[in-house]
């Protein structure tokens, strides 16, 4: 047995230890990027091996908190992929206007940028006051940041450009106040957003949604976990409701794919048929 095979055993044991001790289940994540993230923490902490890391995380909860931040997916931006939001405005929003009350779920919302983006669109389209947005993530540290709605000012140029390309109707500066090197998002945007803890790998359905957005989360899961999550979305959506995935994600390999039709193929917007 060579070193790489031995490291694989260590990785399996490490993930098992995390699951047993803390209840976070990474066992069905895609291994290649998970390894990168874990190795990053290994080097940073000066640990010798995954076995040493396993020992540390079992006895040191603060260490585990740092590792958990590395292991969860925290890369996001406002109006990420503007062409997606443009398609959302054009093809999904008009259909949502037929409902008197809306429930929208951002699954894997990370630090909340996309949930705030959605709130802005709903406001501009006159839907916000009749909407409940559920923005969920498994990582409580990240959720706390999301709730605060404070973002670094150096990202603003990009966000403003994204907003304009995504069909924004106002001036983007209407939605935030700059404060030193940060911007604080307008309070009215989070009035109807409920940020809460939900883990796609282990938790279940919590309501019937009109729209679910889960973008660039499934790419981190293996096929088994992807199927679990897509089934969870299927069970959480009413007939004719919408599902939006990341631009490189697809429902076609999943068992529930027959239940959906494409609304905008290249933007991965789907509608549930039954």
């Amino acid at each position: 047995m060579n070193d790489i095979e031995t490291q694989n055993i260590e990785l399996q044991l490490l993930l098992q230890a995390i699951y047993l001790k803390y209840g976070y289940d990474f066992r069905n994540y895609s291994k290649a990027s998970l390894k990168r993230r874990i190795n990053h923490r290994l080097l940073k902490e000066g640990l010798e091996s995954l076995s040493a890391m396993q020992h540390k995380l079992l006895y040191d909860v603060h260490f585990f908190d740092r590792l958990l931040l590395d292991m969860s997916i925290n890369v996001t931006e406002m109006f990420r992929d503007p062409s997606f939001y443009l398609a959302l405005r054009k093809y999904v929003i008009p259909k949502l206007k037929q409902h008197s009350f809306l429930k929208i779920w951002h699954a894997g919302c990370s630090s909340g940028e996309e949930a705030y983006s959605m709130a802005i669109i709903l406001k501009e389209e006159g839907l916000y006051d009749n909407t409940q947005i559920y923005a969920t993530d498994m990582n409580e540290v990240i959720l706390k940041q999301a709730k605060e709605g404070i973002f670094k000012i150096n990202k603003l140029k990009q966000y403003t450009a994204n907003y304009q390309k995504s069909g924004g109707l106002e001036s983007f500066s209407n939605y935030y106040v700059a404060h030193y090197d940060h911007v604080v998002m307008d309070k009215s945007l989070k009035k109807n957003i409920l940020f809460s803890d939900h883990n796609l790998a282990i938790d279940g359905v919590f309501g019937e949604m009109n729209l679910i957005l889960c973008r660039n989360v499934l790419i981190y899961f293996n096929s088994e976990l992807q199927n679990r999550v897509l089934k969870l979305f299927f069970d959480s959506l009413g007939k004719d409701s919408f599902l939006c995935l990341g631009s490189k994600e697809s429902i076609y390999f999943s068992k529930t794919s027959d239940a959906f039709k494409e609304v905008v193929k290249e933007e991965r917007i789907y509608r549930k048929l039954y």
């Binding site: 694989n8 895609s30 291994k31 290649a32 990027s33 990168r36 993230r37 997916i73 890369v75 660039n216 790419i219 981190y220 990341g246 490189k248």
Partner: peptide, 18 residues
């Protein structure tokens, strides 16, 4: 705009990591 990685079962995976 995506990282490309190879899994040990010799399939491809993508990530939006930093």
């Amino acid at each position: 705009n995506y990282h490309l990685l190879i899994e040990e079962d010799r399939s491809l995976s993508l990530s939006i990591d930093k």
